[in-house]
Simulated scan of single mutants.
Amino acid sequence: MSLDELSEEMQESYSDVGEELTVSLDRETRNELAMLETALEPEETDELVRRAIHMLFQSTVETGTMDFHLRSGFDVTYDEYLTGMTFDEMTGANQYPTMDDERRYQF
């Protein structure tokens, strides 16, 4: 997979999610959400869900979990996705032809 394929899948997922999302909650999640709502008193419960997604995303990026999954699934990192270029494209490493090791040191 590649950077282009990752971008395409991101656009598809973004479209699929849309504005509204219905989520079923198990007992533990419902209990935790009730506690957070009671303690933090947001205007809407939706705000807590948005914050939770932001926190999960941030921790996934900061711990390297995002890069691990992107590298294994698409062979790119999150930074490469953000810049729209692979590391090899950024550094120019893919500009040069591959070296022929048998003739490498011959003059």
Rank of each mutant, 00 (worst) to 15 (best):
S2N: 15
S2R: 07
S2F: 05
L3N: 05
L3H: 04
D4Q: 14
E5N: 10
E5H: 11
E5M: 09
L6A: 08
E9T: 12
E9A: 14
E9Y: 11
S15Y: 08
S15K: 11
V17W: 10
V17E: 10
V17F: 12
G18V: 02
V23M: 03
S24C: 06
S24K: 09
L25N: 01
D26Y: 02
D26F: 02
T29V: 11
N31Q: 12
N31V: 05
E32H: 14
L33V: 00
M35Q: 14
M35F: 14
M35Y: 14
L36D: 10
L36I: 07
L36V: 03
L40I: 04
L40E: 05
E41Y: 01
P42C: 12
E43D: 13
T45P: 03
D46L: 08
D46Q: 14
L48D: 00
L48S: 01
V49W: 12
V49P: 05
R51M: 11
A52S: 14
A52K: 00
I53M: 09
I53A: 12
I53P: 00
I53H: 04
H54Y: 13
M55K: 09
L56E: 14
F57Y: 12
F57C: 03
S59R: 15
V61L: 10
V61N: 04
T63N: 11
T63E: 06
G64F: 11
T65E: 15
T65A: 15
M66E: 04
D67N: 08
F68D: 15
S72K: 07
G73C: 06
F74Q: 02
F74A: 00
D75A: 07
T77Q: 04
Y78F: 15
D79T: 13
D79M: 08
E80Y: 06
E80C: 03
Y81G: 01
L82N: 09
L82F: 07
M85P: 01
M85D: 10
T86M: 02
T86K: 04
F87N: 07
F87T: 15
F87P: 02
D88I: 03
E89Y: 02
E89C: 02
M90S: 03
T91Q: 00
T91D: 00
G92Q: 04
A93L: 06
A93I: 00
A93N: 01
A93H: 03
P97S: 06
T98Y: 04
T98W: 02
M99D: 06
M99A: 13
M99P: 04
D101G: 07
E102R: 07
R103N: 14
Y105R: 08
Q106L: 09
F107M: 09
F107N: 12
F107P: 10
